[in-house]
Simulated scan of single mutants.
Amino acid sequence: MRTYYRGPDAVITETHFVWQSPRVKIFAIEDLDDVRLERAVAGAPSGVEFALGLGLLLLAVVAGLKFGALAAAPLIVAIVGVALFALRRRSSGHAWEIRARYRAEDVTVYTSPDPRIFNQVTRALRRTIERRAVRHSYGLVAG
């Protein structure tokens, strides 16, 4: 079996695409259709992030009312730190993803924060799909 790409989070062979994201996802190359690159949209804050921010804000307001503004200063610094951390994490999200129709379901086949690795994976998948088309065209040659 020919291997087109082997990296830290993905393996592409002539028959399978294996993405080792938080959990392993395996796609049969034969069942991938309508493979395309799409720009990933940064999502809104999750419910946990929103609740954490709201809780810290309420805590700072209560501390400011009860103990004075000077006592609330460390909480305000913590809120600003958490907000900056959330924004930094959000901005470092994936810019591109490989999407496809897999067995009649629209799926994300691969994403990577590293553009160099993402482009290597994209080229390897493209070569695999082109080779699949060549294999299927042999039966159509007239003799």
Rank of each mutant, 00 (worst) to 15 (best):
M1V: 08
R2L: 03
R2T: 13
T3I: 15
Y4H: 12
Y4L: 15
R6K: 14
G7M: 13
P8Y: 01
I12D: 03
I12T: 02
I12A: 06
T13C: 10
T15M: 11
H16V: 02
H16L: 04
H16P: 03
F17K: 03
V18P: 04
V18H: 07
W19Y: 15
Q20L: 15
Q20W: 09
S21Y: 11
S21A: 14
P22C: 02
R23G: 04
R23T: 05
V24F: 07
V24D: 15
V24M: 12
I26K: 14
I26P: 03
F27I: 07
A28I: 00
A28G: 02
I29N: 10
E30W: 01
E30Q: 06
D33W: 00
D34K: 04
D34H: 05
V35E: 04
R36W: 03
R36D: 02
R36K: 05
R39V: 08
A40R: 05
A40T: 00
V41T: 15
G43C: 04
P45C: 11
S46D: 08
G47Y: 14
G47M: 12
A51F: 13
L52P: 01
G53I: 01
L54S: 09
G55Y: 04
G55C: 08
L59Y: 10
L59G: 09
L59N: 09
A60D: 10
A60H: 02
V62C: 09
L65W: 06
K66W: 13
K66R: 13
F67T: 00
F67C: 00
G68K: 14
A71C: 14
A71R: 15
A71H: 10
A73F: 14
A73L: 15
P74M: 10
I76D: 04
I76Y: 10
A78R: 03
A78L: 14
A83G: 00
A83E: 08
L84E: 01
L84I: 13
L84W: 07
F85K: 11
F85M: 11
L87C: 00
L87T: 04
R88V: 13
R89A: 06
R89G: 05
R90V: 07
R90G: 01
S91D: 06
S91C: 06
S92C: 07
S92D: 08
S92L: 13
S92V: 06
H94G: 02
A95R: 02
A95I: 05
A95L: 03
E97G: 15
I98P: 06
R99G: 04
A100W: 01
V107E: 09
V107W: 02
T108D: 07
V109R: 08
V109D: 09
V109K: 01
Y110N: 01
T111N: 04
P113M: 05
R116I: 14
I117R: 12
I117C: 02
F118M: 05
F118K: 07
V121T: 11
V121D: 04
V121M: 03
V121Q: 00
V121K: 02
T122A: 14
R123T: 11
R123Y: 05
L125T: 03
L125N: 03
L125I: 06
R126G: 02
R126E: 11
T128E: 04
I129N: 02
I129C: 11
R131W: 11
R132A: 13
R132Y: 14
R135E: 09
H136L: 12
H136F: 10
S137R: 14
Y138V: 10
Y138T: 07
L140V: 09
L140P: 01
V141E: 12
A142T: 12
A142G: 08
